[in-house]
Design a protein around this nucleic acid. Sequence first.
DNA 1: GTACCATGCAACCAATTGGTTGCGTATCAC
DNA 2: GTGATACGCAACCAATTGGTTGCATGGTAC
Lengths: 108, 108
Amino acid sequence: MSPGRVDDVFAALGDPGRRSLVEAVAGRGSATATELAAELPVTRQAVAKQLATLAEAGLLRATRAGRETRYEVTPAPLEEAVAWMVEVGARWDDRLAALGRSLQQRRS
Amino acid sequence: MSPGRVDDVFAALGDPGRRSLVEAVAGRGSATATELAAELPVTRQAVAKQLATLAEAGLLRATRAGRETRYEVTPAPLEEAVAWMVEVGARWDDRLAALGRSLQQRRS
DNA sequence: GTACCATGCAACCAATTGGTTGCGTATCAC
DNA sequence: GTGATACGCAACCAATTGGTTGCATGGTAC
């Protein structure tokens, strides 16, 4: 399990603004910085920065098409983060433990 | 799904130091601030602060016994965070989608 | 009661960071 | 070509935050 990667994922998801950005992108399927900024009380540059952070953490993938760059969700890192949580919490929680087995089974 | 709660959980897990603290506590079963600080290059107060943050996010539970306060992991918030991730990523990833069903099934 | 842990609280510091403005560049429409 | 659009980059700012030192408090052991 890539160690540093999970760190970045949690750090990226740590900011509420970035979390809602991920939700927004997920809801639209894909989105650009200006699109998202249009409906938010922040600047396009602010959104662009956050998107860059999320992309660097591997949560989003940027694709430049002509003059616009579209972002979409990349679920793989989420799965790693889930794995971390399951691993930590499994001993105290039966549901998480079961979930862990379920996850492991579906891998590979 | 408690909304503010998940925010706190991700924010708490966002710091690498706090993440490793959670791991340490999970590994020991329970631990005190001084115990943890003894093996870290930081002050006891620093650790205590982080533990407080984690406890406030619901990830740890503090129990004062005599002159020492022991912390242990509380997996419930982890489960909520997992639910959030699954919900966001499910559309793009079959494994996460399956995991989501698995999670929902075990809830009640 | 006395010496010794283990904490809690407060003030203070340096580094990080989310956000802004300003400007330069590339692409699309006409 | 010309204007409008979508970006990217850099400098700068204020707020947050992880960490420290110092001190006061409350159990433990004897």
